[in-house]
Design a protein around this nucleic acid. Structure first.
Lengths: 224, 224
DNA sequence: CCATCTAGGGGAACAGCCTCGCAAATCGGG
DNA sequence: CCCGATTTGCGAGGCTGTTCCCCTAGATGG
């Protein structure tokens, strides 16, 4: 994991920079910041699809083609934001550890994380929408980035469940990874329905909740 | 349901045709057939994204802009194909009713349907990929078409489970709709992973299988 | 202070999907 | 067999994300 170019200057989108970015290349860094800022604002104002690269470039004070010194793809701009939000969700989740009373059950922790995630992602449908769209362009570079993000979410969910399993809250021998994936996929699905206006924000949250419920209880009749 | 313009001539992409297509407009029908055929062949040869509208038009023997008398969107062409395949899967599933021995359990029927679906969809990643991509364009008309298709799948899954529930194979009071949605979303997710090369076809099938297993058994420890 | 090197900016242009307005083909009815 | 209406086809063109290649500013090393 984590082998995703830590700080090796995103500039010159294609070639490997000969020198590492040791802090002397300030102009580029400022440009990158302006681009991100402009993109973020415009996405929020008009939405992703209605925002043209030329508009972003203009607000960032440069020509459209110059953007490509700093980004690889339009989608990358939004995925970066998504990534930040995800980290925020994780951070927020880990910080609020034992808020009150006794230790949480795995199911409670799961819910708490999913709620945090929902709250952040429900700000803008584009965040889900465009990310998923990226995964439908398998040859594109962003696809990998988004999938890595999802994998990380799956990992966290699995971790939560593993803890629960070792405490005997979960059925023995349960395939936690499969369960984690199921949860992740279901949240994606619910959010797509939400983005398409089939669900409002609250209904989406509830759908996710219900899905976790169903998954915990199982749908099969008890063996007895 | 079913209010999706049954046969009202898809022509003139914008306006409602004054007369229904009563079988007298043969030229258009032939053109439509040629377009579909050309598109299908080219998608199979080069893949969806590598197939240009101009190429389709050329093979269909017309100019690119003329396509738009018959289709609304490039994606629509592929979604049409997907729709046919889905109907095929449903048909095939219903036909092979009681193949052998005693009555199938709900879980067996579920698996049988999912296998049939997988076999058809595993022919071409584009079928899943592009359909899902369409749902990330909420303002586009195809999005609705794809979502309707998914809803129908969910309906079928729910129906299967309802039967099982009334026979006591399922836990009482289970939310079959939520369970059906979970299954549908999970299959989508697995196929995306497959399309991105994270899973091969067989692993994808197994992932779906496992997910159904986990959902049936539940991950929570039995109350006892 | 100079030669050099490169990150970063810019304009032009490309291919993609799709829209527009107009001309031709085709239709049903008289 | 001809007329008015409707469908179908076409070329031009718009807007998009993205690439290409050239040019400059400013840092680097001597």
């Amino acid at each position: 994991m984590g082998a995703q170019e830590p700080f090796v200057s995103p500039g010159a989108a294609g070639r490997t920079p000969l020198r590492p970015d040791d802090g002397r290349l300030q102009r580029g860094r400022r440009s990158r910041a302006r681009i991100r800022e402009a993109a973020r604002a415009l996405f929020r104002e008009r939405g992703f699809d209605a925002t043209t690269l030329r508009a972003i470039a203009q607000r960032a004070g440069m020509g459209a083609s110059s953007l490509y010194r700093h980004i690889r793809t339009k989608e990358e701009l939004l995925v970066d934001e998504l990534q930040e939000l995800q980290e925020q969700a994780w951070h927020q989740f880990r910080r609020r550890r034992v808020s009150r009373g006794g230790p949480e059950t795995a199911s409670e922790r799961l819910r708490r994380f999913l709620d945090a995630e929902h709250q952040l992602l429900a700000r803008d449908p584009d965040l889900t929408t465009i990310a998923l769209r990226a995964t439908t362009h398998p040859e594109a570079r962003v696809a990998g980035q988004v999938l890595a993000l999802q994998d990380r979410t799956v990992g966290l969910l699995a971790e939560i469940m593993l803890q629960g399993r070792s405490r005997g809250e979960l059925r023995r021998g349960v395939d936690v990874l499969a369960a984690a994936r199921t949860i992740a996929h279901t949240t994606n699905g619910a959010r797509i329905a939400w983005a398409n206006g089939q669900l409002d924000g609250e209904a989406c949250r509830r759908a996710i909740d219900t899905a976790v419920d169903v998954l915990f209880q199982g749908i099969g009749a008890p063996p007895g």
